[in-house]
């Protein structure tokens, strides 16, 4: 099996996974107390088939199979047709309308800048946690057993086991409430609707708002990367080719980064992709703590409003992101690791 076969197999698996997620999502939200009752209630309404009435529930439950062209009345869908319709809606990102705002969910997600805010926060913290984790992990592995090693391992275990919400609260308490170094929350201080100041002037305030939430996420995630890098580096440092490289008289940095890290990088890449789900979970909590108006904070407010369409859509999108991240890491691994193509 060559690279193409491998990729096809992965793509097929990914597709199956997406179907599984959609089915799971449908099943969970059919279980909500009340959903079945609402549907049964609607189906008993004799005027339901009228377009003006059913249109309101159309996206949420998919009650209508088709419209009769003559009377504009709808032909009610069976349960399996509803599922089919739901399926198509999910695949085409047609999530319906939010209970809170009354706007289409996709508009609320992208048009309000929530997606951008989340991507900014996650991007910055992923970048820093990966950089810090890998660099320190490499150095720690090269000094195994020293106080430097134990110190960093303990520190990363500690920051790893500190819950993100607590870290966030402590940072707000110390740096925002007591020292006033950073704002306690929010994305920007600029009022909505008013003209924004020039971009360059925005940068310092934006960084000030971004700093604490990004710090929390970075501190939470660098530990995992560090420990994994250390473990895989320890393994590859004990290989014979490292001894060879050292015997050749290569500098320590060259041995560590060019020979050991390169060979140890595969699990790190996989882990970075796999930790994406955890990152999104962390984002929900961190955004809530800091009132960071992103997707995570949106999920939180959807929970408190029982805004099920939003929760449903967000769960689907997060799962989709994770699945796609895994797929990309699979492709990446297939391309850089020649052994994988012939599993």
């Amino acid at each position: 099996m060559g690279l193409r076969g491998y990729l096809l197999k992965r793509a097929f698996n990914t597709f199956i996974l997406i179907l599984f997620v959609i089915t799971l999502n449908f099943a969970i939200f059919q279980l909500i107390p009340g959903t079945q009752g609402v549907i049964a209630n609607l189906l008993q309404n004799p005027r339901l088939t009228d377009k003006s009435i059913i249109g309101r529930y159309e996206n949420q439950f998919g009650l209508c199979a088709s419209y009769d062209p003559a009377t504009q009345h709808c032909v009610l869908a069976t349960a399996s047709q509803r599922f089919g319709k739901y399926f198509v809606n999910m695949l085409t990102f047609n999530f319906g309308v939010s209970y809170q705002s009354g706007h289409p969910i996709l508009d609320d997600m992208i048009g309000t800048g929530r997606l951008y805010n989340t991507l900014l926060l996650l991007g910055v913290s992923t970048l820093f946690s990966l950089l810090i984790g890998i660099f320190i992990g490499v150095f720690v592995a090269s000094r195994r057993g020293t106080a430097f090693d134990t110190g960093w391992v303990t520190t990363s275990l500690v920051t790893y086991s500190l819950p993100t919400f607590w870290m966030g609260l402590i940072f707000i308490l110390v740096f925002a409430q007591d020292l006033h170094w950073f704002p306690p929350g929010g994305v920007t201080p600029f009022p909505t609707g008013a003209p924004l100041p020039p971009f360059l002037q925005q940068i310092p305030t934006r960084i000030a708002h971004l700093f604490l939430p990004a710090l929390v996420l970075t501190l939470y995630f660098y530990g995992g990367h560090l420990l994994l890098t250390r473990a895989t580096m320890l393994e590859s440092l004990s290989e014979d080719y490292i001894t060879t490289a050292r015997a050749k008289g290569l500098s320590n940095t060259k041995v560590l980064f060019k020979h050991a890290l390169k060979n140890a990088s595969l699990p790190i890449v996989t882990n970075a992709a796999l930790s994406f789900g955890g990152l999104l979970g962390g984002a929900i909590i961190t955004e809530t703590v800091f009132n960071w108006d992103g997707l995570g904070h949106w999920i939180f407010s959807a929970i408190s409003y029982k805004d099920f369409p939003v929760m449903q859509a967000m769960f689907y999108i997060i799962a989709l992101c994770v699945i796609v991240a895994n797929f990309i890491s699979d492709i990446f691994l297939g391309v850089i690791d020649p052994r994988i193509k012939y599993e």
Binding site: F29, L280, I284, V322
Partner: peptide, 18 residues
């Protein structure tokens, strides 16, 4: 594998609220 890929906290949230 499927269960492993689904992000756990969002699933927890959804299940707990449902």
């Amino acid at each position: 594998d499927m269960m492993l890929v689904i992000p756990s906290l969002p699933l927890l949230i959804v299940l707990a609220s449902v």
